[in-house]
């Protein structure tokens, strides 16, 4: 993953476009206030589900795919460690504890002479 066949200019484009676009999202209603004072109710209802939907879409494939292959079983260390971390996240909602438990669990599972 460390080779870089993309050009510097491509990365600059991503940085600038994502940053300018995000600034636009943040500025949207602050700038428009007076012309549009509130988010239309339908839009607001959709926006409230953005974090849950987006974050799940980012997490799940990283856990259930192992080297690009679907791996929903006990031989997938990241699924096991992620499952444990999910319990910690659910109980504590603490970022450091979630990452700490998940990483240590992964190291232990990979280090144990199971299966492989």
């Amino acid at each position: 993953m460390s080779s870089a066949p993309f050009a510097d200019s491509t990365i600059w484009f991503v940085i600038v476009a994502a940053s300018v676009g995000t600034f636009g999202l943040r500025l949207s209603f602050i700038a428009l206030f007076g012309r549009i004072d509130t988010v239309p109710p339908g839009v607001e209802r959709a926006l409230q589900f953005v974090p849950a939907a987006v974050l799940t879409a980012l997490v799940v494939p990283d856990l259930v795919y192992l080297d690009g292959a679907f791996a929903l079983g006990a031989t997938n260390p990241r699924l096991l460690a992620g499952g444990l971390a999910a319990v910690v996240a659910w109980r504590t909602e603490n970022m450091l504890a979630t990452i700490g438990v998940g990483m240590v669990a992964l190291w232990i599972i990979e280090w144990l002479p199971v299966g492989a």
Partner: peptide
Amino acid sequence: PLLFMALL
């Protein structure tokens, strides 16, 4: 993914 999980 662990970081995203905590945020989730």
